[in-house]
Write a protein that binds this DNA or RNA. Structure first.
Length: 116
DNA sequence: TGGTTGACGACAT
DNA sequence: CATGTCGCCAACC
């Protein structure tokens, strides 16, 4: 049985368009569990096919390191393949962050408290 | 049931 | 800017 949180996380991540990214904390907030950023990572680890897991990065705009190091490189390649540019190993979140329909640019800085 | 483990994040140093 | 701590939550054992 997949938990309710995982189902909501998968449903949300499926909405992230090509060439855009979201952070673990952002996803957590958007599904109503602002403190579960870490659990979102666990969810991505075992997400079903069809979920663009590679479009989820950490709050620094970087690809999180796996315990065994696998997968991190492919995630970056997938993103670059969608036009997401990395500068010194990081993505400019102000530029690529998907804001769930909000007018891009209206939210320079991501503010979790505005999502409630 | 209870302790450990991370694809995390906010803060302090 | 680079670490280290600590809180959180679901998954595992």
């Amino acid at each position: 049985m997949t938990s309710a949180l995982r189902r909501r996380v998968n449903a949300l991540v499926r909405r992230v368009p090509r060439g855009r990214v979201v952070t673990y904390g952002q996803v957590a907030a958007l599904v109503g569990a602002p403190r579960a950023a870490r659990a979102v990572g666990q969810a991505m680890r075992v997400c079903p096919a069809g979920v663009p897991w590679h479009r989820v990065v950490n709050g620094q705009g970087a690809v999180s390191r796996r315990g065994d190091g696998s997968g991190a490189l492919s995630q970056r390649l997938l993103l670059e393949g969608e036009g997401v540019r990395f500068v010194r190993g990081r993505i400019d979140l102000d530029r690529y962050r998907w804001t769930a329909g909000r007018r891009p640019g209206a939210t320079r800085r991501f503010r979790p408290e505005l999502l409630a």
